[in-house]
Design a protein around this nucleic acid. Structure first.
Length: 498
RNA sequence: GGCGCUAUCGUCUAAGGGUUAGGACGGAGCCCUCUCAAGGCUCAAAUACGGGUUCGAAUCCCGUUAGCGCUACCA
């Protein structure tokens, strides 16, 4: 267990290029849990230095996603903080100043190579069977001459002057020591020709200036580690503690969890964006529980953990190094679990907007009655639209008359059952208990098993074979609706027989 | 190709030298039961391969293989 001496300050630093992805959510969650566990700060920083891929909707998607998941940030957009601004395009001057320091110290150099030349060089190197990359042509330019050309307005980038030999050992709390040969490193671009820094430089400068104590980020960054460490060194800074989180892999192709939404072979939607999960009716408690289990575990059996328990129990030394494959079934299981755990009143409240979004005009009172019937039968809140539709509609969707006939029965039997039920319903008190007693009696009188008799009634009333318990359902539907639907079923059956 | 990371049931994982290799999802079966669920019980299912080190290896070391990641004036 590492108990850091410095105050814990961690950040989630996404690039606003697209929708908020579950991989990003997992990274954000681990940072959040780590910060809260150590009573530190969770900072949100927007790394928008890529103007080409910038998406104006991305920030809203991100912020909404974080709020939905319950991951509140202490500093960042809309929260403020003493280390702002927290949006990198508002910090350009800071980067230019620091870049100047590197230039002055001879740790960086101006590069006047055109993109065309860069591409040609890389191709040529590749053709020779060498590593593609930059040939460091401008590295040996006279700095004063280069400065003059730059002052004259000649387009250029600023590149980092990396050591040409030797090796660098870096430490990662999850992976241990990793050594890289400096000869394999590239003189990375720090400042683009438009005067905007690249990720590498902006990221390092901000993490230092914002006094970030631990960097928890995705595994795709390990190869940037030596570059970043060299940068910290060049600035004379102490790097934060590094932790590279295991990647989340696609359930199918085993690649990095796709940025695009996919469909399963059966056509089922396979969401990858936080927003989609929210829209489908996944509970935030299920999402964070599931996400926490992707690359981290508490012990050999505990899996169900709420927000506070996760904070209490989270620790970096129980984070895995190996990648994790996304499992929709397990998420569904957890979501079902959390749905069933909700008190009926609260579940009803959460269900309401989903039913209405599906086009059903449902009153709160009605939803309160329906909720206990579907609680065990939905895995997402959105399922209310399909599982409870017949409880909200006036007219049943069309179904096949053959559905009314039980396996071991025939049309005549089904018809008789429905006719008896119709009469019985007229007489009986309309409570679940009374209905059950009355209809069981009818089954007896008919000389058929209760289940045999119930199926035609169920299909008549619900429009399908798989449905919530019959008597509760009838009670919620009410006498008039039940009688009407049974009448319609009798007609259907009569036509079917003809 | 180069570099890096990773390797326990199909999947998520536990076991940081000595366990009948444990749990969860999914699967199968049984129970409950008016259907469907939910729930309960049971079963099948794993240490990638080869070498070391050790009395003893899933665990430590080396190699092989495989998978993934990175290889941009993207992050």
């Amino acid at each position: 267990m590492t108990t850091p001496l410095k105050p814990v300050r961690v950040r989630y630093a996404p690039s606003p290029t697209g929708d908020f992805h579950v991989g990003g959510a997992r990274t954000a969650l681990f940072n959040y849990l780590f910060a809260r566990h150590h009573r530190g700060s969770f900072i949100l920083r927007i790394e928008d230095t890529d103007q080409k891929r910038y998406n104006p909707q991305a920030l809203a998607w991100l912020l909404n996603g974080l709020r939905y998941l319950g991951l509140d940030w202490d500093e960042g957009p809309e929260a403020g903080g003493d280390y702002g601004p927290y949006v990198q395009t508002q910090r350009i001057e800071v980067y230019r100043r620091h870049c100047g320091r590197l230039l002055d110290a001879g740790a960086a150099y101006r590069c006047f190579c055109t993109p065309e030349r860069l591409e040609a060089v890389s191709k040529e190197l590749q053709r020779k069977g060498l590593n593609p990359g930059y040939d460091r042509l401008c590295r040996n330019l006279d700095p004063e001459e280069a400065a003059r050309r730059a002052a004259a307005g000649e387009p250029h980038t600023v590149r980092f002057k990396l050591p040409l030999d030797g090796e660098i050992a870096v430490h990662d709390v999850i992976r241990g020591d990793i050594t890289f040969q400096n000869a394999n490193l590239q003189d990375a671009v720090l400042m683009k020709s438009d005067g905007i820094p690249t990720y590498h430089m902006a990221n390092v400068i901000d993490d230092h200036l914002m006094e970030i104590s631990h960097i928890l980020r995705g595994d795709e960054w390990v190869n940037s580690l030596p570059l970043h460490i060299h940068l910290y060194t060049a600035f004379g800074w102490e790097p934060p503690v590094m932790a590279h989180l295991p990647l989340i892999l696609n359930p199918t192709g085993k690649g990095k969890m796709s940025k695009r939404e996919d469909r399963a072979p059966d056509g089922r939607k396979l969401p990858v964006f936080v927003r989609t999960f929210e829209e489908m009716g996944y509970l935030p408690e299920a999402m964070i529980n599931y996400l926490a289990l992707l690359g981290w575990s508490y012990d050999d059996k505990t899996e169900i953990m709420g927000h506070d328990e996760l904070i209490e129990r989270f620790s970096l030394d129980r984070v895995n190094a190996s990648p994790a494959v996304w499992n929709y079934d397990k998420l569904d299981h957890l979501n079902g679990h959390y749905i069933r755990q909700l008190p009926v009143e609260e579940l009803a409240e959460r269900l309401l907007p989903f039913a209405r979004a599906a086009g059903f005009q449902v009153e709160r009172e009605k939803m309160l009655q329906v909720t206990p019937l579907i609680r065990e039968r939905i895995t997402t809140l959105g399922d209310v639209a399909t599982v409870a539709n017949f409880l909200f509609m006036d007219e049943l969707p069309p179904y096949d008359a053959s559905e009314l006939i039980p396996q071991k029965g025939n049309a005549a039997m089904a018809l008789a059952a429905l006719q008896r039920a119709g009469k019985a319903l007229d007489a009986a008190a309309f409570t679940r208990e009374a209905l059950e007693v009355r209809l069981r009696d009818e089954a007896n009188a008919m000389g058929v098993k209760a289940g045999q008799m119930f199926q035609p009634i169920r299909v008549a009333v619900c429009g399908r074979k798989a449905a919530p318990p019959l008597f509760e359902t009838m009670e919620v539907l009410g006498r008039a609706t039940c009688l009407k639907r049974i009448g319609q079923a009798i007609h259907k059956l009569a036509e079917h027989a003809v």
